[in-house]
Computed example of a mutant assay.
Amino acid sequence: MIEVRRADDRGVIERHWLSSRHTFSFGHYFDPKQVGFSDLLAINDDRVIGGRGFEHHAHRDVDIFSYILEGALQHKDTLGNDVTIKSGEVQMMNAGTGIAHSELNPSSTEGVHFLQIWIQPERSGALPRYQNAQFPQTGKRGKLKLVISPDGRDGSVSTYQDVRAYAGLFHGAEAGVLELPNDRYAYVHVARGAVSINGCSLRDGDGARVRKETRLVVSDGSDSEILIFDLRPHETP
């Protein structure tokens, strides 16, 4: 079963420095029917103007994954990390017992477009840590590349949860397949372009909850970039 969440139905946050679309309830946007999915708590599609961003603030007991689509993002945290990641790169901040950070656009003229994704860890009080990784287009072209996993295998960044995420680029005849155990959920997010998932057409910003499907077939892409999350089979409280 595939339940589509259209881009135009997402929450909208507009500030003079930030344009954001929220797939799930987050911050000032609340929809009781859209309070996460399994261990996914947030998928925020953020665009930040040059020289601005999210100033120093703190988190605990949440894993925050950033996927850069355009531009660059400078991360600083209380663990001593000072890293700038660019398009094609990702980062994972496991807040654990507590970490403070900032996420700023280092350019004075160009915007940054990125996805900010929150994952509920399996336990509280874990060790705070930071990771980043590069995933070139060649490794995602016409295939689903593992980018998040519990154990960091195959160069993925690791999360304190039984979650795996795959990123892929698809156009024309390119196709990909993700096999799922029959007791798993999945969530599909289209970062840009258009694509078909098991014959269901999705476009830029669309998402889909997936239940009781053991095989996801990605096809009919039009300059598409997608993320697919392999999740535990439970509903968000």
Rank of each mutant, 00 (worst) to 15 (best):
E3K: 04
D8N: 09
D9H: 01
H16W: 00
L18D: 11
H28S: 07
Y29H: 03
P32H: 01
K33H: 08
F37P: 00
F37R: 01
D45Y: 00
D46G: 07
F54E: 03
F54I: 07
F54P: 00
E70Y: 01
G71R: 07
L73C: 13
T84F: 07
K86L: 12
T97W: 08
A100S: 15
H101M: 14
H101P: 15
S107F: 10
S107H: 10
S108Y: 06
S108K: 11
T109L: 13
T109P: 06
L115V: 12
Q116L: 13
W118Q: 10
R123C: 15
Y130E: 09
N132G: 07
N132L: 04
F135E: 07
T138V: 13
G139M: 08
K140M: 11
R141G: 13
L146F: 05
I148A: 09
S149P: 01
D151W: 02
Q161T: 13
D162H: 06
D162Q: 08
Y166V: 05
L169C: 14
A175Y: 06
A175G: 14
P181I: 04
N182S: 10
D183M: 00
A186I: 10
S196V: 11
N198Q: 11
G199R: 01
G205N: 07
D206W: 00
D206M: 06
R211K: 15
V217H: 10
S219C: 13
D220H: 15
S224M: 03
I226K: 07
R232K: 14
E235V: 12
E235G: 13
